[in-house]
Amino acid sequence: MAITASMVKELREITGAGMMDCKKALTETDGNLDAAVEYLRMHGQAKAEKKAGRIAAEGLVMTEVKDDKVAAIAEVNSETDFVAQTDEFQGFVKDVVSQAITSKSTDMDGFMAEPWNGDSSKTVKEVQTEKIAVIGENLSIRRFDRIESEGCIVSYIHGVGKIGVLVDADTDVVNDEIRSALRNVAMQIAAMRPKYVSNAEVSDEYKEHEKQILLAQAKEENPEKPDNIIEKMIIGRLNKELKEICLLDQVYVQDSDLTVGKYVEKVAKENNANLSIKRFIRFETGEGIEKKEDDFAAEVAAQLQ
């Protein structure tokens, strides 16, 4: 069967694959459009497997909030920042967040097996595989989270998707002032990396573990000092560390005279609200992924040999 330009164009619009790949698929399937789509998906899988060994440590974090009450956050990784800034990739990440906000899954395996945004013919994993074939880089939906609130949820994205934050607050007043204040708190979280909302969330096991580390450090630094003096020293150091990792005890970056907790109290009083920070989620792109360090000079030299 003769393969026409209009057939290639139609297949390309459906799949987003390259022109020559579309022509080959149609040739191999004798012009059958549905079969050609499946052909490209199958070969996309092969390409995806070849790319799966590449480190995907760039990418984007995106969030979505509906009516202040339901929110989702997702991190999708790519190999290069160049791809992360393309419309194709950003559209995919946006769709992943839309999937996450309606998802009932609690882990990545369940999420990847879900029908793609209501399309029962494809799973999330299959769409990711297709996107790898189209974009030409290894991509990874690394993580997602979803929260529901009876109070108010706000989101904040920093650095063109490098850091994303969701803040969930208990509040009986929801207005622009409250939303603005919670966004300020989200910016604080993005910048200062707290681990907990308050000291009450920190486990005794964590405190004891940190105490032992500080004790060993103090004894090494001050071998001549008696144990009772060292004990007082490490209590002070531990309290200082806890203030740095607990959001409400941190110095508020926009007003160093206040802690974040005092800032929230101030906003609550001004709005006659019962306002408290319930939880937060912070994703940073590539966090914890060991990135490949390319030696450009060595790479050029190898190609010249």
Rank of each mutant, 00 (worst) to 15 (best):
A2D: 14
T4Q: 02
A5N: 05
A5R: 11
R12S: 14
E13C: 14
M19G: 07
M20A: 07
A25K: 14
T29D: 09
G31M: 06
A36I: 06
V37K: 15
L40N: 13
K47C: 07
K47A: 11
E49K: 15
E49N: 13
R54L: 03
R54F: 06
R54M: 02
I55S: 05
A56R: 07
G59T: 11
L60C: 10
V61S: 02
V61Y: 03
K66F: 14
K66V: 10
A71E: 01
A71D: 00
A72H: 14
E75C: 01
V76N: 02
V76R: 09
N77K: 02
N77R: 00
S78H: 07
E79S: 01
V83Y: 14
A84E: 02
D87H: 05
Q90V: 14
F92Y: 10
V93K: 06
K94P: 01
V96K: 02
Q99G: 08
Q99Y: 07
A100I: 00
A100D: 10
I101P: 06
T102G: 13
T106D: 10
A113Q: 15
W116K: 10
G118T: 04
A133M: 10
G136E: 08
F144R: 04
F144K: 04
R146W: 10
E148G: 10
E150N: 13
E150C: 12
G151F: 02
I163P: 02
G164V: 00
G164D: 01
L166T: 04
D168S: 06
A169I: 03
V174N: 07
V174Y: 05
V174L: 04
V174I: 07
N175M: 02
E177A: 15
R179P: 02
A186L: 06
M187P: 02
I189N: 00
M192V: 06
Y206K: 08
E208M: 04
E210Y: 12
L214M: 12
L215I: 00
A216L: 09
Q217F: 11
A218N: 12
E220C: 13
E220F: 14
N222A: 08
D227N: 10
N228W: 00
E231W: 00
I235M: 04
G236E: 11
G236M: 00
R237C: 01
L238A: 06
L238S: 05
K243L: 07
C246Q: 09
C246P: 09
Q250T: 08
V251A: 07
D255Y: 03
T259K: 13
V260C: 10
K262H: 08
V264L: 05
K266W: 09
E270A: 12
N271P: 02
N272Q: 12
N272G: 13
A273V: 08
S276M: 03
F280N: 00
R282S: 00
E284G: 12
T285L: 03
I289M: 04
I289F: 04
E290W: 00
K292L: 12
K292E: 15
Q305F: 15
